[in-house]
Computed example of a mutant assay.
Amino acid sequence: MLTDVKRKIIFLVEDNWGDIRLIQEALKGSAVDYEVAIARDGVEAMACLRGEGDQPAVLPDLILLDLNLPRKDGREVLAEIKADPRLKRIPVVVLTTSRNDDDIIKSYDLHVNCYISKSRNLSELFKIVRGIEAFWLETVTLPPRQS
């Protein structure tokens, strides 16, 4: 049985414009047909995911979540995503500079799917992002996106 192949959506929740540009650059040339939706803080992220305001909900295939966000931090965002029946199956990869054991433990306690510390080395960061993309968008069978 053939399935309808839809364009994948990566939802990047990141406040650092430089990191946003680097992650987008690392994803260029991907074999996967995807688009990147971006939220710059936790409040904006949850509004996008829930379709609050005038916007329809962004229901991505994968969420890349920074922990240290303004207005609502990534831990709060993660907790809200995993507590929401409509959002909880979306894989969330924490992609952050924090290597703090408490952040790692708290993220897994909140049911993050994967915790990755960002490298400040450009080639290493590109390798990490391409690895995330290859695993989560090419290898893994994701749950179907709900409308």
Rank of each mutant, 00 (worst) to 15 (best):
E25R: 15
L69Y: 10
M1T: 15
G53T: 09
S147V: 11
G53I: 07
L27Y: 08
L125G: 07
F135I: 12
E124G: 02
I116T: 10
E25A: 14
T139N: 03
R40V: 11
W136T: 07
I90P: 08
I128F: 00
A26D: 09
K88P: 00
K106F: 08
A26H: 01
T3K: 14
I20N: 05
D73Q: 13
F11Y: 12
S123D: 15
D15E: 13
G29L: 06
L27H: 04
D41Y: 10
L67R: 14
K106H: 15
I128K: 06
G29C: 03
T141H: 08
L62Q: 01
L95A: 04
I63R: 01
I81T: 05
P85E: 09
F11G: 01
D102T: 14
N113K: 12
Q24G: 14
I105N: 09
K106V: 15
N121A: 08
F126I: 09
K106I: 14
M46N: 03
D84V: 12
K106M: 12
T139R: 02
H111G: 00
K6R: 12
D15V: 00
K118M: 07
K88Y: 10
E44Y: 03
W136M: 12
V36E: 11
L62N: 03
V77R: 09
T139L: 13
D41T: 05
L59S: 11
K118V: 05
I20S: 04
V140Y: 04
W136Y: 09
R7S: 15
L78M: 10
D41Q: 11
I116A: 03
D84P: 01
